[in-house]
Amino acid sequence: MKRGSKLFLGALAASALMSGAFAQKLPAPEKKPAAKSAEAPKSAPEPIDSQTAIQMANDYFNAAQVMTADFVQVGADGRRSEGKLYVLKPGRLRFEYALPATMEIIADGVSVAIRDRKLQTQQLYFINQTPLKFLLKDELNLKKDVKITGVSSDPKSTTITIEDSATFGGSSTIKLNFDRKAFALQQWEVTDPQGYQTLVTLHNIDLKSVPDRGLFRIPPTSFWPIQN
């Protein structure tokens, strides 16, 4: 598989929505012995059953129709990329990688284009060939749209593992990790058909501003600037 296709699968299928992931941890205030001894132990949160977790995940994805965020992507080779993500449901998405990366990924509602600004190349796929198809739906139902292979929970997070066998190249496995407090998606990791794992982290998430629709137009290849 070409590196552009690997980057494509990683970016599209491993986007990690992580509000607060980059928040700095502050040291706990010093406690006096008396206060500490009187403090009642914190109880662990109640377990979440799998059906409730799946419904909460559906509610999370369906609550917002737009998104703008900064992202950091770490590939299987440890290579780190940064950029901007724009989403406008149904079907529209743009991953805009910052330099020195030269890639951009644009979904216009029907097709997905992987574009390399340096090489001036473009590969086109149908959305239904990619893991994008269920993420960019107006109304997501994980039970019907994907195969759920596992749901697990601990005091800090809940993880839903899904499998998508309809992507080009074979099946992909995606782990959606939600924090327990707000049940917001805090991490999303994909294992692509070749076994490569990719992780993307989002921060500065804006779920209210509507992105410019022009961001989701796939330009003709004839519009590439002439290189000297």
Rank of each mutant, 00 (worst) to 15 (best):
G75D: 02
T158M: 06
T130R: 05
N58Y: 06
D70G: 02
I106F: 03
V151K: 06
D77L: 00
R92I: 04
K156T: 07
T198S: 12
N62P: 08
L202V: 05
L12A: 15
L12S: 15
I174D: 00
G214W: 05
A40C: 07
P45W: 08
L215E: 04
A53H: 03
K133T: 10
D212W: 04
G109C: 07
K25E: 12
S165Y: 14
E189H: 03
D179C: 06
L7K: 00
R213V: 14
T173D: 02
K32P: 00
Y196L: 14
A13N: 13
S19L: 13
T161H: 04
G20W: 05
N228K: 14
E163S: 08
Q187V: 07
T167E: 06
L142C: 02
V190K: 05
S172N: 11
S43F: 12
N204C: 08
M18E: 03
R80E: 14
R80V: 14
L88Y: 13
P47L: 12
S15Q: 11
F223D: 15
P29Q: 09
Q122F: 10
D59K: 04
F61R: 02
T167F: 10
F95P: 01
T68Y: 00
D206Y: 04
T191G: 06
S50L: 02
I148F: 02
R94P: 01
G169F: 08
I205A: 12
A21V: 09
A76W: 03
L140I: 15
L185R: 12
S81W: 08
R115T: 04
A13W: 01
P225Q: 01
L9D: 05
Q120M: 14
S209K: 11
L140F: 13
T201Q: 04
M67I: 10
L26D: 06
P155Q: 05
N58Q: 10
G75Y: 00
L26R: 09
W224P: 04
K137P: 03
M103S: 11
S152F: 02
M67F: 08
K143S: 15
R180E: 13
F71L: 05
H203M: 06
D49P: 05
A101Y: 03
P27L: 04
A182P: 02
V151I: 08
L26A: 14
T158E: 04
F95C: 03
L132R: 05
I148H: 13
L85A: 02
A98S: 15
Y97D: 02
V74I: 15
M1L: 09
L215W: 05
S111Q: 14
N58E: 10
Q51R: 12
F71C: 02
V146N: 03
N228V: 12
K144S: 12
P90G: 11
L88F: 13
D164L: 07
F134W: 14
Q51Y: 12
Q129I: 06
G169M: 07
D192S: 03
L9R: 04
G75L: 00
V146D: 02
V200K: 02
Y196I: 01
G78K: 01
K147Y: 13
I226V: 15
G169R: 08
F126M: 10
P211K: 07
E139H: 09
F61G: 10
G195D: 04
L93W: 15
S50T: 11
I106R: 02
P41H: 11
E139W: 08
Q73R: 07
L17F: 06
S5P: 06
